[in-house]
Design a protein around this nucleic acid. Structure first.
Lengths: 343, 343
DNA sequence: CTGAAAGCGCTTACAG
DNA sequence: CTGAAAGCGCTTACAG
């Protein structure tokens, strides 16, 4: 392998001069620059990035932990994140927990070992907050609370729930079915408040519907990445609750609900209104363009990338300035777009 | 930062003993192992992976170049690839060309600089075959020909086209609309045969339909990652060709066609049959479960990962054994699954 | 402005 | 079986 040493020899200059030319650090005479650049070209020299990573103690890679990239929500989030990271000269490592035997642990280990400069956590975790805090490396959580000292970005799900409740109330819905993840994940079992913010929209929605005197029922759909489970849950809803006149669920669940309605001859939105939560492509290519509560992926990715940069800076130089106070979670607004599946 | 040196000092042993314990290479006495492990624990020592990467000249990271991870096809492919890579102790770097200003170039550079051990190329490229061959690092192409010396895995698109033609012929279709990518990409402009194998299904389909005397028309939908363009193209098809009785396109195009049919009151499959190509989730959550030609993502990912491993081995040790002959492209079978949108 | 030297944290021959 | 030494390819103070 041809190294800097070979270039220096060929150009008849010192190692540091070559380094200066490559990095554009400090001043080098034009003559020197020419000689070095020619030598590099002739030798077809490519700097070994691993040596630089080693020296600087960083890789410029950020890990994005998601359950699975196959889910449109996480695909969309990851795509936007990659764009934001690229704009900050950071690369994106895909860390899908269902596609790796050891789940998130492997990626946390990479963060510890400095193979990763930082981690965005957007997948469910069973670890308590101590686990995350004790890692002592840059971590930012999306839509979940990982403990007092971990930066956090969330969508305004409470508002999302309100928007849906208002819409359903004003369109005269009487009997609402909601499909979502395992109910157990709603509650704060560990006492460390690691509740999914994601499901706050359901809690708010239920509260608002109850206040408005609108009947509602909740059906669990299993894990987020179990597509068949979602389909089965939706199918079950239509069997068990033939009287519903409104359906609320994440994009995919809503798309399946649309399918069920078509196959059962139920008119949408005449007999059944459907509201999708998230606003990914899945809501666009369903049977009809679904009415959606959109998460603002641009803003989310921008906020996450910003926090990531902050965290990387904060932990740089082993200083580890002990975050004097837990930063406020950054809350990103959501919006309701009424399309063809609500009245 | 606490290093091996500190561990060695604390345990009262030499550096190499610590290294041996960490790597499990060679024999170390139980006593030594205990001492070292205790010291590591007490110091909370984490090995610096960057130093190891540097020494070994590799990172264990494979880049996957796709146009965008938001597209269900590439999301599915990438998910399966990550699983296969993980099983081989390789990590996955997401290289989405539309989400990075410099497109693929940046990732090729990382491959050259050894930040990446290998590259899977699954996105369109304008470079000619010399470009890819001259990189001299492990590269495997999916569904495209990158030149004589680049390993290749493809789906059996010719068979996919036949399957669709047979189905349409036997169900009495008379007037078929096909939506696909820019026609210019079909032809072999450079003379270096970099044609997308992806579109071979269209070429075969057209040939078979012509032979069977079935009218057909092709409509361009723009780039693969331009979702709105697909939607517009599909909309245009229904406006320009109201007489069609069959529609063929990738999952998303087919899903949009289903939507158009619903909104225009066209009965599916009675008046219009729809066939989706790829078989991702998008075909599952469309208005009706679409009849699909499925690509075998498991087999594709398995084949790609296998080739990647082969290439990494081949290029290991700078030996660069000059691939005596271009390996045969590996062809992965596709299957037709008739569901609700064909007769 | 340029160059010789030390060092980033590991691993691995090579002596003992 | 264990330890001292060299070296992976860069970067960066520090002298000249």
């Amino acid at each position: 392998m041809v190294g800097m040493r070979d270039v220096a020899k060929k150009a008849g200059v010192s190692l540091s001069s070559v380094s200066l030319v490559i990095n554009g650090t400090g001043y080098v005479s034009q003559d020197m620059r020419d000689k070095v650049e020619q030598a590099m070209r002739e030798l077809n020299y490519v700097p070994n990035e691993l040596a630089r990573n080693f020296y600087h103690g960083k890789t410029g890679i950020v890990g994005v932990i998601v359950p699975t990239i196959q889910h449109p929500f996480f695909a969309t989030l990851t795509a936007h994140l990659q764009r934001e990271f690229a704009a900050r000269s950071l690369r994106t490592m895909l860390c899908s927990t269902v596609d790796s035997a050891s789940g998130e642990a492997q990626y946390v280990e990479m963060l510890r070992q400095r193979s990763l400069d930082a981690l965005v956590v957007a997948a469910h975790t069973t670890h308590d907050s101590d686990y995350w805090t004790s890692i002592g490396r840059p971590i930012v959580a999306f839509d979940r609370n990982l403990g007092a000292h971990i930066a956090q970005v969330s969508s305004d799900h409470a508002h999302g729930g309100e928007l849906i409740a208002d819409l359903l109330a004003s369109t005269g819905a009487c009997n609402v079915a909601i499909v979502g993840g395992p109910r157990a994940q709603f509650t704060d079992l560990s006492g460390s408040n690691t509740t999914f913010p994601t499901v706050r929209y359901v809690q708010t929605l239920e509260k608002c519907l109850s206040q408005a005197g609108i009947a509602h029922t909740y059906v669990e759909s299993g894990e987020v990445c179990d597509l068949d489970g979602v389909r089965r849950a939706v199918h079950g809803v239509f069997n068990a609750h033939p009287g519903i006149d409104a359906f609320v669920g994440a994009d995919l669940a809503a798309a399946f609900a649309m399918q069920e309605a078509t196959m059962r001859g139920i008119a949408v939105p005449g007999q059944l209104q459907i509201v999708a939560y998230d606003g990914t492509m899945a809501a666009d290519c369903a049977g009809l363009p679904l009415t959606v509560v959109r998460q603002d992926f641009d803003a989310i990715a921008h906020a996450l990338a910003g926090r990531i940069e902050t965290e990387i800076t904060r932990f740089a130089g082993d200083a580890q300035s002990p975050m004097t106070q837990t930063p406020e979670p950054e809350i990103v607004p959501v919006t309701l777009e009424a399309r063809t599946t609500t009245r």
